[in-house]
Design a protein around this nucleic acid. Sequence first.
DNA 1: GTTTATTCTGGGAGCGTTCCCAGAAGTGCC
DNA 2: GGCACTTCTGGGAACGCTCCCAGAATAAAC
Lengths: 340, 340
Amino acid sequence: MTARRAAAARATINDVAAVAGVSRGTVSRVLNAEAYVSEAARSAVMDAISKVGYVRNSAARNLATRQSHAVGLVVHEPHSLFLEDPNIGSILLGINSALSDADYQLVSLVIDSERDSHRVAEYLSGGFVDGVIIVSARAHDPIAKVVAELGIAAAFVGHPVDVEGIPYVGIDNFSAAKAITTRLKETGRRRIGMIAAGLDRDSGQDRMAGFRAALGDAFDPELVVTTPLYAHTSGIDGMRLLLDRAPDVDGVFAASDAMAAGVLDVLREVGRSVPGDVGVVGFDDSAWATRAQPPLSTVHQPAGQLGRRAAESVLAQLRGETVDTAGTFLETAIVWRDSA
Amino acid sequence: MTARRAAAARATINDVAAVAGVSRGTVSRVLNAEAYVSEAARSAVMDAISKVGYVRNSAARNLATRQSHAVGLVVHEPHSLFLEDPNIGSILLGINSALSDADYQLVSLVIDSERDSHRVAEYLSGGFVDGVIIVSARAHDPIAKVVAELGIAAAFVGHPVDVEGIPYVGIDNFSAAKAITTRLKETGRRRIGMIAAGLDRDSGQDRMAGFRAALGDAFDPELVVTTPLYAHTSGIDGMRLLLDRAPDVDGVFAASDAMAAGVLDVLREVGRSVPGDVGVVGFDDSAWATRAQPPLSTVHQPAGQLGRRAAESVLAQLRGETVDTAGTFLETAIVWRDSA
DNA sequence: GTTTATTCTGGGAGCGTTCCCAGAAGTGCC
DNA sequence: GGCACTTCTGGGAACGCTCCCAGAATAAAC
């Protein structure tokens, strides 16, 4: 099998113009939906387009407009969370959906961390993309810094930890944590504990604050176990500690599904039934939730919307609009399964 | 925050030529590593490039060469497995790595299934990409058909079910299944059963054949339970059936990690310890494997390599080379954890 | 009917490359 | 020194679009 050029000779705007009996300029105006085109000319051009099978040559357009009509999805390997984030697929689809609605392309910018940030800057200022979306950046992400300096149209999905001036889209962790804790409380639990994590970020703090707000007077600091990571093992260690402190605990809110899965493991180990003896809820609605036994009640993140909104922010910046550099917080939903 | 053009005035090839004291043509030759450039000219151009901070304008290049220098990753939503495949992130990274080595861009082609295949064909022949990579296509995938008809440079990652003439990259299911079964046998198991699935595909058949080959004379058809799907519930049902048939089973090879997780659930239910009473192995090294209790011994797929090889095949086609339209099979590795 | 504003159209110029041809410079051989 | 190669260089033309200006056609106002 050898390579073959897809189409021997593709129709150009000139072919369309000739068939429609108008000029190149008029075809271009129709293509770009500009004003001042007569209805007769417009329909003649439309007919001609489908007749000759015209498809716009984006390279020529990009060259003439000096824009790439592309938005990059920055994946900064291996330091990014790209491979770990369970919602990444949906986020990507959401981004793409918004972009293609606006006739923009999504290009993947996988940046190898071996190279320095100078290379990254060159890459971004190289005109390959008009804007950039950064998913789950970590603290001190060099790309975030470069983007901020260059003033490139950009948006984050997820919390940027130490970057100012770039809009981001996230979820309302406080309300979500409060809502699911309330729901857990309503199942009749009296002694509800929490396995908290990531308190060095506002997302982690907000989840804990939401938990506290939901319990009100019933809140007992003794029942909150803090761990540094959102990991499965943190959930195991955290739950053991919690059981030590409060053997009568009958409800647990884990700040991530991975930790909740760890909680489940410990409860099984010590012979407590879920949700019979103890009700457990998680956070994320990741793969952990459905694969756990029993499946976890958890907080669902609107991953697709997260991506879409970030893309729309970049698009707005590209149109020259002023966008809010503060965060946009999306509503979450509670998914009630069998663990509580 | 308003949009800002990244660079006020980017350096062009003419600026480089002026600084280097040579002509446009010579700069172009240096840029494209062509023959017939004197060493003096080459180094003068190189110096000038870094001096003026030149970055090639890909739109102009694409226009002049009539190639996009981009390869598309087709994601055919919602029918594709894009969101489900646990290895998708690594595959994507592997593809990108090979592509960027060859100075190609990866662009995401998310195709909405609401539109017809005519639109897909237009998309692919529209010159947006020079080639295309299709991940985990399902049977009767319309894109696969269009690609085959158009003769576009393409490659599959994963088994195409009903498409001929397009190269694909997969793993050697037979050897992998044989190897892990042998390994299981070597732990001293005497009665090893299998939960097979997907026998309507060669991947499923190969896994079963590998299992059989590993056992040799010890193979007992009675100990093979067949299910249609690779799902978790299939694993549960399959294991119950296997225990009915052979209560003395002391080893199980499940054709997927999801099924192996189901096997684990059943064994726990009936009070058999793993790996004490029964050794269990899976296939895929997906998230199920690490999240199972105990973590599964399984077959690891070289996801990054799968992507890289597919990309390299497309690149070879683009260079006009003849590539083998049969499948390329990559070696797998056994990951030995705690379940056997 | 004339003037003025508005709507519409054609086509030249330019975007930054690559391609290719013509010719200059260098090398080797008789 | 003359001739035939080979190596190297410059620059015109083209790629297919958008931008923009000048002017034609039409509509509105006097």
